[in-house]
Computed example of a mutant assay.
Amino acid sequence: MAIHELLLDPTGTDEAGQESTLSPRPVTLNGLRIGLLDNTKPNATLLLEEIGAELQSRYGAGETRLYTKDYFGTPATAELLERIADECDVVITAVGDCGSCSAATVADGILLERAGVPTVSITSDSFLMSGRAMAAVQGFPGFDFHAVAHPMASLTAEQVRERALAALPEVLRILGVED
């Protein structure tokens, strides 16, 4: 017999809107401002910068803007999310490589989508279930995000670059941009 447990949202945002519709997707990245939301985990900045550079060089994306959260284990503040939504056309947020940071990374993506900004959240595959659980708690169980191979924190710069290149097709797919 299956036992069902109540899943509580540790972020305190479960009373927010339960909208589960994606923001309109861009047809192209040409000239779009790319927000990179770093959750402060080791190698998050490097992963995001590598992806941003590839989006610029291969797909004509405009400038990238790096933002950093106060703490990896909770969603970004409302003020930071509002600033990102005002300044960016699409966002990539990373990297969830533990349970709480994976959940918070997915919550950030959902909150940005609800603010009208197409967003790709990136977790690691070891914490895929944490991300899925947060999506369900946020009322967006089908929220699509990408999971890179775990671990991320202990990788060299070249290994992070390889993960960024491997993630690029999924980033494009989630944003709705053809490769």
Score class of each variant (00 low, 15 high):
R173M: 14
C88P: 00
A16F: 14
C101R: 01
T156F: 14
T119Q: 05
R65V: 13
L48Q: 04
I51D: 01
P42M: 13
T68K: 15
Q18W: 11
I92R: 01
S121N: 08
T11Y: 14
M1H: 04
V95W: 13
S154N: 09
A115R: 09
N43E: 11
L128T: 07
C101M: 11
A85V: 08
G99H: 08
H146I: 04
P118N: 14
G109H: 08
P141V: 15
E87C: 09
Q56L: 12
L29E: 01
T11Q: 14
L8T: 04
N30I: 11
Q138V: 00
P169Q: 03
A2Q: 03
I3D: 00
I3Y: 04
M1L: 11
S130R: 02
R25G: 07
A164V: 04
A78V: 07
Q159L: 09
L168A: 08
T21C: 06
L7M: 07
G116M: 07
V177G: 00
E49H: 09
Q56G: 01
G31T: 10
S57G: 00
Y59E: 00
L155Y: 05
L112W: 10
H150D: 03
G17M: 10
G131Q: 06
D89R: 03
S121I: 01
T156H: 07
V160E: 05
A157M: 14
E178A: 15
T64V: 11
F140I: 02
A115W: 08
E19G: 09
V120A: 08
N39D: 12
T40P: 01
H146Y: 14
E19N: 11
N43T: 05
R25T: 06
A167L: 08
E178R: 15
S57A: 10
P118K: 09
T123R: 02
G60Y: 13
G109P: 00
A53Q: 08
G131C: 14
C101I: 05
S102A: 15
D70A: 05
T119R: 02
F140Q: 00
V120K: 02
L47I: 02
G142D: 15
T74C: 04
R58V: 06
T40M: 14
L46I: 06
G116H: 04
A166V: 05
E50S: 03
F140A: 02
E19V: 12
R25E: 13
L155A: 08
P26D: 11
A85T: 03
T156Y: 12
M134S: 04
G96N: 03
E15I: 05
V117L: 05
S100R: 07
H146G: 00
A167S: 12
L175T: 01
E50R: 07
